[in-house]
Design a protein around this nucleic acid. Structure first.
Lengths: 141, 141
DNA sequence: TTTCGTGCAAAGCATTTGCAAGTAG
DNA sequence: CTACTTGCAAATGCTTTGCACGAAA
């Protein structure tokens, strides 16, 4: 795994303390946090952190294609550090988001019906393997 | 094509004037309007229409699985009347959303890595065939 | 010294909610 | 009469913006 500092330097972004913290948090495997989740988690370590900085940083990282937006929820934006496109699954019972199987022929296509494809966002919804056995599955999200 | 009135009756929804108007608008082919677009369009014919009614109706239709939510934009919710799952493409230059090719093996799967799939949302982003020839493509959305 | 990173507070925008009035069976 | 549909206005929640302070190059 590339060093967080190098990732930023390569994109001509000053590797400030806050930016490094936010990027390191995002490089954890299989997480898709909201800006609020990022803020709350880092706030414990950095009590001076502001939501604005989190938003500014996420916006900057998205523009520089370091992270990508996950719009699976429709309610709030989620973010992930993704080096290659993959598929997301959201469980309507527990609300968890899982990364699943990458072997999708669709992901290889660069042109489809004449349109140039730059980004793939594949969102599946249903009931996850952990919730399928539950007696009374209730929608959480 | 089924009659709008019958679609609602089958789901035990009173086919009120407003509901029929909203449903009929949504059954047009290949459109993915926001609630605001629906409101503005219908407001011309129905000056007493309120945004609340549009929201209430869209929520009801979603719950009854008559329409589905399209979260491709991340900014605002879009809606569509979709009888079968398909793929959406959003052009970052003109902002238009296109329905594309349905032949995706993924769409046949009911179970993936143990998770039960109930909904498919496949969003592609890039530059559409109409904008690819433009001199200075600028992001619109 | 000039630019950049940060943070507060206010504003913005899409959506939801509480409640009251009107309508239909 | 009773339940449902509608609409206004206020509230909510996520995100953006304006602006000022302070640190870094």
């Amino acid at each position: 795994m590339k060093q967080a500092k190098d990732v930023l330097m390569e994109k001509n972004i000053q590797p400030s303390f806050h930016r490094l913290k936010i990027l390191k948090l995002l490089t954890q495997r299989n997480i898709h946090p909201t800006s609020e989740e990022i803020y709350l988690k880092l706030f414990k370590e950095i009590p001076t952190l502001s939501r604005t900085t989190v938003y500014n940083t996420l916006k900057l990282f998205c523009e520089k294609r370091i992270i990508s937006e996950v719009t699976i929820s429709g309610k709030e934006m989620r973010y992930e550090y993704a080096e290659e496109p993959h598929i997301h699954f959201k469980c309507r019972v527990c609300g968890n988001i899982y990364d699943v199987d990458k072997n999708c022929a669709l992901l290889d296509k660069k042109i489809l019906e004449g349109h140039k494809i730059e980004e793939y966002h594949i969102y599946l919804k249903g009931v996850c393997k952990h919730c399928r056995g539950k007696k009374r599955p209730e929608n959480k999200a």
